[in-house]
């Protein structure tokens, strides 16, 4: 559905996208994972034909976003990161407006948005500006869906939305995927990565890896331990002081400790911590998650630079 090869986009002196290549297959739920300023929004704008690019090759459903932008715009549903509804119009007025500009009616594609719409219907006369974050996102999604797009581009739909609404939102996306819509979604929340079929990790305009979440995790080749002790803060600082440790990052109530040597054991970590006078130490060998992998790749990139 989407094919991006060696894409470069510069703004004045800043290189927003640096040699980006990725592919999104038909009917896939694809995640673009990275922090603010990584280039996610720029990539979305290039794909949706809103921005021209400097180098590389981009194709959306076989169409070129530079020359064939009209065809692409007809076929995609785009939800920009900055919330994009009219705050002074009610839910219903927003929906009616967006159906009208796509030359369709609410009734025509109602079955597609029905599941989402019933959740916000009780507030249909309330102005969009007075909705909660979760409801706004649902409304925006409805508006992006009214014309039955083949490709849905969602730029950070869950940013600033609470945990419950985020879960609901992802459930909705899964249902849409089952109806055959290709979805490309970006998020700064690493825990959402595992909900996608394939993901691309992006940092400072560069793709650090494109694969299934499991595939990304496999690139994490070092031993990883979840460590816990009574004094959490000095636990972190002590682990960082340790030569054997590659990195130590807090993860909920644990510290995730990555070791330099492949042959490191939990015993080794425990004895080090006892020598530093920590109490109630617990060390477990664990497998990495997407966030561990992201940080690992970030460190590797920094080292290579």
């Amino acid at each position: 559905m989407i094919e991006v090869r060696n894409l470069v986009k510069r703004f004045a002196e800043v290189t927003a996208l640096n040699n980006v290549s990725l592919q999104v297959d038909d009917g896939e739920l694809f995640g673009l994972i990275g922090p603010d300023g990584a280039g996610k929004t720029t990539l979305f704008r290039v794909i949706s034909s809103l921005l021209l690019f400097d180098e590389g090759h981009v194709e959306v459903a076989g169409k070129n976003p530079v020359s064939d932008y009209a065809a692409i715009r007809q076929m995609i549903g785009y939800m920009p990161g900055k919330f994009s509804l009219y705050q002074d119009l009610s839910i219903l007025e927003n929906l009616r407006f967006f159906t009208a500009i796509f030359k369709t009616t609410l009734e025509e594609n109602y079955d597609l948005i029905k599941d989402i719409y019933v959740q916000i219907e009780p507030f249909k006369h309330r102005p969009a500006g007075k909705l909660s974050g979760g409801m706004k996102q649902k409304l925006a999604l409805c508006c992006a869906l009214v014309h039955k797009p083949r490709l849905l581009l969602l730029d950070e739909p869950t940013t600033g939305v609470d945990a419950v609404s985020r879960i609901e939102f992802w459930e909705i996306l899964k249902r849409l995927k089952q109806q055959g819509i290709t979805i490309m979604v970006s998020t700064p929340y690493m825990d959402e990565a595992s909900l996608c079929e394939r993901i691309a990790l992006i940092q400072q305009g560069q793709i650090m890896g494109v694969d299934s979440p499991e595939g990304i995790i496999k690139t994490f080749s070092k031993p990883l331990f979840a460590v816990k002790a009574d004094d959490f803060y000095s636990l972190i600082t002590d682990l960082r002081d340790w030569n054997e440790a590659l990195s130590a990052f807090s993860f909920g109530e644990y510290v995730h400790l990555t070791m330099r040597s492949e042959s490191s054991t939990a015993m080794q970590v425990e004895s080090y911590l006892f020598s530093r006078n920590h109490s109630s130490v617990s060390v477990k060998a664990i497998s990495a998650n997407v966030e561990d992998s992201f940080m690992y790749l970030m460190l590797k990139k920094e080292e290579s630079q």
Binding site: G34, P35, D36, A38, E156, T159, G160, P188, M190, Q203, I236, F249, S250, E291, F294, M295, M298, L299
Partner: peptide, 13 residues
């Protein structure tokens, strides 16, 4: 909000 995972943890430090 929206910060990369390493920076986020450094902030908590």
């Amino acid at each position: 909000g929206g910060v990369d995972p390493i920076t986020r943890r450094q902030f908590w430090d």
